[in-house]
Amino acid sequence: MQYHSPNTFEDAAALAVAAAGVTRFLAGGTDVLVQLRADIITPDTVIDIKNIPGVRDITRHDDGSWTLGVATSGAEMREHVELGLDWPGVVEAMDLIGSTQVQGRATLVGNLCNGSPAADSVPAMVTAGVEFSVTNSEGTRRVAVMDIPAGPGRTHLAQGDVISAVHIPARGARGGDAYLRFIPRTEMDIAVVGCAINLALDAAGVITQASVSLGAVAPTVLRLDEAAEALIGCTLDEATLDKLATAASAACNPISDKRGTIEFRTHVAGVLAKRTAKIAYARAQGVTK
């Protein structure tokens, strides 16, 4: 196994292009090392991107949008008070991954690129409208979250593509997001179902924008556009919540495995959608943080 520690994303991309065999970029390493240790994937080349300047910066731009360095850990996100006020759902989704120890290392980009359908931060990034800078030998382009996952363990990124920044939109007025997952224990599990919802309200509390996403119920993260559409124009009354739950369950295309059954995942997706919506709505109203 070759280990490289370049100082620019361009160099990182060039190293990846030149590498033969299996290449892994190393940010937090909390998935790469597990796979290495368990003999699931032993990369031929590991490219550590943590020595590139700025990879742990959290920046709020004048327009209210955010840029996060790709090696920013979950713990660093959680400790950033303003980020948590703007995007509590994104922060809590990241925070749910693994232990305190894992939080000291794990990153949004790693969670995405690991390609797990159950990745906690991915539904929250989907509903927040997160985009990534992707750098390769031809330059840097912007890619939306939904365009990256290709299936369990796979992404649409090419050899030589390296994610170089995380962009979170401006929060905007009267908005709120939330993420809930179901796990059998209180901590340390992989999501059996994950649900993120991002809402914006008008002054009367009517939902004007909505985004709903589910994790762990299909080969890749789901964005539920019809369920979101059904929320728009409503306050969060019981009938709306029931419609949301039905739509969430209907969208599921899960498998039965050691973590949960098809029946369980489908039912709990609806339960979580309701609960998540209530939290997001309260946050959008400014009732809770």
Partner: peptide, 16 residues
């Protein structure tokens, strides 16, 4: 065996 690591063999953790 499908769950041969502590991630999926779920012993109680402190918060449980």
């Amino acid at each position: 065996l499908q769950n041969s690591i502590f991630l999926d063999y779920r012993v109680p953790v402190a918060s449980d």
